[in-house]
Write a protein that binds this DNA or RNA. Structure first.
Lengths: 169, 169
DNA sequence: CTTGGAATGTCAACAAGGCTGACTTAAACT
DNA sequence: AGTTTAAGTCAGCCTTGTTGACATTCCAAG
């Protein structure tokens, strides 16, 4: 399994022969890049004594206003108890509003308040600024490739969720 | 290379104009992809009651055998107390060996034992398998772009560390 | 109509792994 | 000799994951 090289796939193997070393570099690139990716929002959140979990909740509530707790759970891939803790503080702090469902009263529909939307804006401005700079530096074709590889790296279920969100916009 | 258009409704021509929506999609792609990226090793580690922190330590000790604690600290971006907790269990479990430095006896040079190397192999085989599949699916040019964007997204300091590791190999 | 099961959300307690701060030890440098 | 540096330790805190127990609501079968 580790002759330092990995087998060739169907078609065009001469162009795509992936050594363990090349793959290892990709792994490290993901590690370091993800750190950069989260660094700016993390700094903002630290001042507010929130964490990355709060950011994720705010992000997806912003993208899908009125979503239920269960929806959010699936997207975020955490337990409902874990999410609930974060949600509770956001609601207590007046950033998120939780309305009892109209048809099904078991559900809660989640929305950002004005204050919540303002924080969302601040956080994503910071994150987008870095992303924009990286996109500009790398160029359009690199960006297309970037997105293709990321998509191929997702778990199938998450990939479907991602595509659903993408196409809705 | 000249038509520059590849799926995903992402036209390269629009890159001077990076809409918030396009950037948001990139942000979500990073989020979902990173989850996939860590999923396989996480499963293996859970059975051993280790966590991602142990994986990272093992990974970088493997890449730079004989590295010092201080080096590792800088690469991983955590405090020595945090790293020490992880390192202590790895040493106690016989996966990592800590040798007093030859020239500077204050330093400790870290190496994987045979058992440590075996676990490293198992973890990175899993992670590489996914990476390889994603690379194959996306194709060589996408991979080049992927790496370029990731590199541009890193903090400058981490970028230097990344390049140093890359060029050493 | 009632009742039992499924879905949804909440509360409590615990563990991993970050963090800070204070301190020790040993070696190196000046 | 005195200072600085590398490493390790102890204590305690916070965020954010986890399970388990529980309350509420809905719906469908009896």
């Amino acid at each position: 399994m580790s002759d330092g090289r990995s087998g060739a796939g169907y078609g065009g193997e001469s162009l795509l022969y992936l050594t363990d070393e090349q793959l290892r570099q990709g792994i490290e690139a993901m590690f370091f890049a993800y750190r950069g990716f989260t660094a700016d929002p993390d700094r903002i959140l630290a001042d507010l004594s929130y964490g990355r979990a709060h950011h994720r909740a705010i992000h997806f509530i912003h993208c899908a206003p009125g979503t239920t707790v269960n929806n959010l759970l699936t997207i975020l891939g955490v337990t409902k108890q874990s999410l609930n803790r974060v949600l509770r503080t956001l609601i207590a702090d007046g950033l998120v509003e939780s309305r009892v469902g109209a048809q099904d009263k078991r559900e809660r529909n989640l929305h950002l308040t004005e204050a919540g939307a303002a924080l969302e804006q601040k956080l994503s401005d910071a994150q987008r600024a870095r992303m924009r700079a990286a996109y500009r530096e790398a160029g359009p074709e690199a960006v297309a490739g970037f997105r293709q590889v990321l998509e191929a790296m997702m778990d199938p279920e998450m990939r479907r969720a991602y595509i659903r969100l993408r196409d809705k916009a």
